[in-house]
Design a protein around this nucleic acid. Structure first.
Lengths: 348, 348
DNA sequence: CTGAAAGCGCTTACAG
DNA sequence: CTGAAAGCGCTTACAG
């Protein structure tokens, strides 16, 4: 059945002839306009004709040409998705969610990568625009707010990982500040008082939020913030590793580490291991993201769980709402803490 | 500069008017045909006109509409990429390579996921075909050979992770058998004789190849193959974990484990840890894939390195060659062994 | 409810 | 070398 569809297409392509809407019209004895209207449900059509057309479509195995459709109707049924790095483990689940949500609504995703570079991201957007996407989802965009607001005049936008206020701009986000707060609160609750923080890149909005959450938790726990406990990371394993080494070299004392993301935590754990420190006996480690593998490393990582599947599906839903002139309402569950084995209580 | 481009587009979209080829023609005082020919280098044009057109393009910031181009010219400048799961850490780097290679040649990728299901994959292909892609890259496809060969009649194909012979089908692959051989050879060279193997899903061609390589190495090392040393995995962490538990529960003795992929190795290491076995002191573990994080887990994983970036870029290059009727020649480097700290010599 | 016609923005024979 | 014209496969006012 499906099989023969492929074969039909192969044959059609080989002979250079695909089934067109016009052929369907002829077969059904109606005008192309009518076929189009039935296809798009864009007008009421006499039942008998509907049936005739449906029969013709089935018989001819007609599949409308989206390219022509796009040119004629001005709608491409595609939405652009700007991720920063398609190979980042963090985006994976979100992208899968976007794909699922978009396909369900009849749209196709166009994935492009900005590589965390403003210039690249701008090229991505241009490229998507030239492909006539009907909406764009930007994952943790680097572009200035005003530019996004302006861009939204030409195409609706959904932004994740940061907040932007504007017409036709919708933000789907998890509260990173809250996530960081929860993580740090937990460590404090376990008795830790010297909690190091390995930050993300300072130019990432969500990295800053995590720092905020960390500070807020300390304040709430009446623990003074000490800048020497903060080491610079880069959201990558190598950065986490370097950060721990820097902390240790500076003889900073700490009993727990809160890493800005899981990759950072992996690097931190490796560095601790190399320096002869055991996790969690000597140092507790908490990550952020809950990557799929984090539950399987040794020891399994306690980390802030972000509902990245919800982010993906929510973003897809929201952009479709925007495109179809509905008001989006997608919400993402608040982050939670997945407590595993890289942390333990501490008493001096 | 780039900035103003966005603004121009925003304005254009807002006012409903994009710059068209016709406007460029008027501005340059030539016919649309001439503009088109200059754009496509499809005919020699007088220098003065070329310059006039180029000036007009620059002045108007003209960007050809790929949709119209696709409809008129029959070429969509896009290629479909069927991955099995866009969120699998294994595909990440390959996808990035494909994106890079395709963009460089002026094509855009359309990523879709087959979820390891034949039916889903078939829908993906149909979807891509309806989007008029000019070629398709299939990552470890599940479709039967004959179907692929047949599909290739309608659109050129590049297949990774398996071999298919056919016209307009090109295979870009790493030799999984060789990779498994190298890994097992290494363990044997280190003195291991009881080497367990955690397999991949039996219906994955490359999983079978890895088993073959394992067996070939044993044979070469004059070590009898023992089926009780083989445990079933599923290419996921949980499978690796379950496999180790099964082996241990059955009281099978082994000093080393070769896991069919890194995710499996992660799960295996966690299971060993839970059972009180140390890696590499008690058991050596070798993985396959060399995922980006494998160098950062504790202990860093010895694993077969696959040049997945080359796979991606090679696949992109090959499909473009096929589309443009050249003979592809993309090759991927043979897998190598990344020796790290999850293995150690063994002597009874 | 439904056709004929124009048009979306390009490309490509067809004639100079 | 270069235009005028037709056409790619749809959609959508415009008239019934």
């Amino acid at each position: 059945m499906r099989r023969s569809e492929l074969e039909r297409r192969a044959a059609a392509a080989a002979s250079g002839s695909a089934v067109t809407l016009e052929m369907v019209a002829r077969e059904a004895g109606v005008s192309p306009s009518t076929v189009s209207r039935i296809l798009n449900g864009t007008a009421r059509v006499r039942d008998s004709k509907v049936r005739a057309v449906e029969a013709a479509i089935a018989k001819l195995q007609f599949l409308p040409n989206p390219v022509a459709r796009s040119l004629a109707g001005g709608k491409s049924m595609s939405v652009g998705v700007v991720t920063q790095a398609i190979d980042s483990p963090f985006y994976g689940v979100s992208l899968a969610g976007i794909e699922k949500g978009l396909l369900r609504a009849g749209y196709s995703p166009l994935f492009v990568s900005g590589h965390w570079r403003e210039g690249d991201e701008r090229s991505c957007v241009d490229h998507l625009l030239s492909r006539r996407v009907e909406g764009i989802i930007l994952m943790t965009s680097r572009l200035p707010d005003e530019e996004l607001v302006n861009l939204a005049r030409s195409v609706p936008l959904v932004v994740t990982g940061r907040r932007v206020d504007g017409d036709r701009v919708y933000c789907v986000d998890v509260d990173s500040t809250l996530g960081a707060r929860v993580a740090t609160d937990y460590l404090i609750g376990q008795g830790h008082r010297r909690i190091a923080f390995i930050s993300g890149p300072p130019d990432h909005p969500d990295a800053l939020q995590r720092l905020d959450g960390y500070r807020a938790a300390l304040a709430a726990g009446r623990i003074p913030f000490r800048s020497k406990l903060v080491a610079a990371g880069d959201y990558l394993e190598a950065g986490g590793q370097a950060a721990i080494n820097a902390l240790l070299d500076a003889r900073v004392e700490f009993t727990a580490v809160f890493a800005a993301n899981d990759q950072t935590a992996y690097g931190a754990m490796l560095a601790l291991h190399r320096r002869g420190l055991k996790v969690p006996q000597d140092v507790s480690v908490v990550g952020f993201d809950d990557l799929p593998t984090s539950a399987f490393i040794v020891p399994p990582l306690t980390t802030v769980h972000r509902y990245t599947d919800e982010i993906g599906e929510g973003a897809a839903e929201a952009i479709v709402d925007l495109i179809e002139r509905r008001t989006p309402h997608a919400r993402v569950s608040a982050p939670t803490l997945a407590i595993r084995e890289s942390t333990r209580p501490w008493r001096d």
